[in-house]
Design a binder for these strands. Structure first.
Lengths: 336, 336
DNA sequence: TTGTATGCGTTATCAG
DNA sequence: CTGATAACGCATACAA
């Protein structure tokens, strides 16, 4: 058993309350007794029991960070950023992984409801479910959403403007003179992917280009899917001159297929990928990509949550951040 | 305020203890009252306050996972694996990041000492410091180390046999007929890197090859360092025919330098890298690498910790796992 | 089967 | 400045 307040009180011949005051630097205790108490505490390596403390003052200094897939590089970076900010503010984070399972999400929600954490940040691509929605209705549940789209958004959230990101990428390709731009998007059920498609379509319309549905590939997620979609394309009549690929692994597969086919990037096919990881700079040629404002996503979300916890947020806030277009070789027209 | 046991007791006209028994599925409560209580609890969305519960039964179902750098891909994968195992056992994990700062490590240790967590897993490359050492002396502190070397190891730990890994890699290159094998290792202060060098030397000796200190590059960590070390090599008399590079980014830099110099892998220089990430399979040519047993590292460490928590471990246990050599094109001699 | 009383370790309120 | 004492929400030994 570790040492408690009571033990120290006995050793110092004072009341527990005095010890508590001394240890917490509160007024109302003479310098001499304070020193005596502090000395005893240090000598015995006293650590206040945080559970008891939390129970008494209703503060745990912990928040939950709930991701849907811990594999996701981007999400991990956001977690890291949140951890950094949280640490500054004296908060610990509990890491949760729902593995895309709504039941898990629901169970993690009880961390909030059981007062283990003071707030929760949900990161991810899933539609906001009923459990989360319901929980958010209570003003006691401090919840911030990151990159999580809801059909109607009552939540305080930090969002990436996927649509505008892809819009910028598409416009860039158009400006480079490419006319037939294909897009490889992920799961049709993903609101995020839907947003990306919107941006693509908007850019075409904005430039008076005709939308060709044959150039839109949905549900291509993963290296293999990226590879295969290129093969499919080759059998079609309309060959595109540029690609936008909305997911990293898909992009890799696509690049492999293009190279295997004996074609060159950007000479035969221009290409813009998604996510600015080391991969995109190493691949041959260096890839133009859309880069998410990861750091800001993390810092804003924690700042919001802290405000919620401290009741400094009168009503839900939404912060929208735009991805940055990083132009490297893969999207530059060689012979303009 | 959320609803408490007491509230439910009042609504049901029974004592708190009865409610507690009913909710915890304990014997000694009639079916009828139990149903009544359960119904009221559900209706009011009751969630037991875990702080109070933990305080009463001295169990938090939480463990701390302490990494030294959250950037580290390998470490994150281990965390993910631990999370998976922990979840099965009903444990939550608190994620901590010391940023290589011993002070931080010390402060996270207090999570243990203040009974917030039932145990802690330390992952990382740093030497075990005095604070950790001291904490480990108390049998109340359940501590497991992962890939963390100590000069004398009293800890229950799970270790990668770095030395043997590099030994295997070196032997493989020798068997392929390479005679002048250079090694690019990381920080001289890292015990892990020191282990790797040991394996290299041992393999040379084992094959009666002379150790050439000019072929040992220490403190080469990062892309730039990898690149530069190749440039340095080019100015030397003795040009190696093969490389072992012990860190991923360093390997990338090295590959870039080799290619920029107009040389080919493995024709001019064979190469074995470290860490089996997607990068190593994408790079041209696909890289032979040493792959760490990440999943096992995670599952063993949690299993150990659980045993410690349940007092099922009479004395410190050490599990040593060996990295796997994955042979791809980069280490195959073309003209044997 | 149920209720009462007490403890877990801390903070806070109120006297003294 | 200091000390009792209640409260936080739950679990449990003991009585009824």
């Amino acid at each position: 058993m570790s040492i408690t307040l009571k033990d120290i009180a006995q050793k110092a011949n004072v009341a527990e309350s005095t010890v508590s005051r001394a240890l917490n630097d509160k007024a109302g205790v003479s310098q001499s007794t304070k020193i005596k108490i502090l000395k005893i505490a240090k000598k015995n390596n006293y650590r206040p029991n945080q559970l008891a403390r939390g129970l008494a003052i209703k503060k745990t200094n912990m928040i939950a960070v709930i991701t849907d897939e811990l594999d996701n590089q981007g999400q991990i970076k956001i977690v890291k950023e949140i951890e950094k900010e949280a640490e500054k503010a004296g908060y610990q984070i509990i890491l949760c992984n729902t593995k895309q399972n709504p039941e898990k999400e629901k169970s993690y929600l009880s961390l909030l409801e059981s007062n283990q954490v003071e707030g929760a940040i949900f990161i991810g691509d899933q539609l906001v479910g009923s459990a989360l929605l319901k929980a958010s209705l209570s003003s006691e549940n401090n919840i911030v959403l990151v990159n999580r789209l809801a059909e109607e958004n009552f939540f305080t959230s930090v969002l990436t403007d996927y649509s505008h990101g892809i819009f910028k990428a598409t416009k860039h390709l158009i400006e480079q003179g490419f006319k037939n731009i294909a897009i490889l998007a992920g799961s049709e059920n993903s609101l995020i992917e839907a947003e990306k498609l919107k941006g693509y379509k908007k850019a075409l319309k904005n430039s008076d280009l005709k939308l060709n549905h044959d150039l839109i590939f949905k549900n291509t997620a993963g290296r293999k899917a990226g590879y295969n979609s290129f093969l499919k394309l080759c059998k079609m009549n309309l060959i595109p001159d540029a690609f936008i690929s909305t997911q990293e692994l898909t992009t890799i597969g696509l690049v492999e297929a293009i190279k295997t086919g004996g074609y060159f990037i950007p000479d035969d096919f221009a290409l813009i990928g998604y996510a600015d990881t080391i991969l995109s700079s190493i691949i041959e040629p260096p890839l133009s990509v859309l880069s998410e404002p990861i750091a800001k996503l993390g810092s804003f979300s924690f700042a919001f949550l802290l405000n919620l916890i401290n009741n400094n947020l009168a009503e839900p806030q939404i912060k929208v951040l735009s991805p940055k277009l990083i132009v490297r070789e893969s999207s530059i027209a060689k012979y303009n």
